[in-house]
Simulated scan of single mutants.
Amino acid sequence: MATSRRRSGSITALSLGYLESKKNLAGSAGGVVGVGLALTGVAGGLWPLVVAGLYAAGALIAPPERVTPPEFDPSEQLGVLREDFLRLREYLAEVELPPAAGGKLTELLELYERLLDPGWVADVLAADPESVHVLSRAVRTDVPESVDTYNRARWWNRLQPGTVPPERHLERQLSALFDEAERLTAGLHEVETRRQQTHTTYLEERGRS
């Protein structure tokens, strides 16, 4: 019974939606023209077909209904990213790393933390989807992948010594990620600098006028 009521409600909603749609309104306008032709005798005995044809023509040429895209709150995206960052830190706390790589990783995580810390810095970050994507990729993929591949390569290196030490690759990967994070930070700083310059220009021009 409940399913039947839901289906009935859905059909009713669809029917009401179509009645209010642009296609139905345009088709109805065409149908009215067809009725007018029928009343004046222009359509002759084929007036039902004329009315139906004009209705269909009006419905076809009417623009499609615009579906409003969903709005995503950037702050909510950062909230989820912060949770993933905490999970990453919990994972890294249980991993043993060589001193050099461990120090570079600590610097990297501190930089991520400052960017994600709730406040105006995070607001600037949230306004730049590309920066959010870069940081999300680093937290969710790049850092855990770097550490995990190091741990696996270290085990194989014990069986086959003499190859490039896996900690060197790890250090290079973390250095690359740190450079990327610094570029991201510099880009956000540039945005704020341009904003300040724009406001200065506005105030000076307003003063002249």
Rank of each mutant, 00 (worst) to 15 (best):
L174H: 03
A43T: 11
A186T: 00
E182G: 07
Q160S: 15
K22S: 12
E145W: 04
V121Q: 12
L92H: 06
P74C: 03
P98T: 03
R89C: 08
P166Y: 02
D117I: 12
P161Y: 13
T193R: 15
T141S: 07
Q160N: 12
L97W: 08
G79Q: 03
H199V: 13
K22H: 04
L14I: 06
P70F: 08
R195P: 00
P166M: 02
A181R: 00
E182M: 09
L16M: 13
V50I: 05
L109P: 02
L78A: 03
G34N: 03
L184R: 02
K22L: 14
R154H: 07
K104R: 14
P69T: 08
L88T: 10
D179W: 10
Q77A: 08
D179S: 06
P64D: 14
E90Q: 14
L108F: 07
L25C: 08
P129C: 02
I61K: 07
D73A: 15
A13C: 00
T40K: 09
R152C: 01
L46M: 14
R6K: 10
P144V: 05
L108Q: 05
A62H: 06
V147H: 01
I61T: 04
S15H: 10
F72H: 15
G31I: 14
F178L: 11
R87N: 11
W120R: 15
T163V: 15
G44R: 00
D179C: 01
V164Y: 03
D123G: 03
R87A: 13
E110W: 06
E113I: 01
L170H: 04
P70N: 12
G34L: 06
S21A: 00
D142E: 11
L109G: 04
I11E: 12
W156V: 15
E190Q: 10
K23Q: 09
D123T: 07
S4I: 11
Y112E: 11
G36P: 05
E65D: 06
F85V: 00
V33C: 07
G34H: 10
W120L: 10
P129R: 00
E145D: 06
A56L: 14
L14Y: 02
T198L: 13
D84P: 11
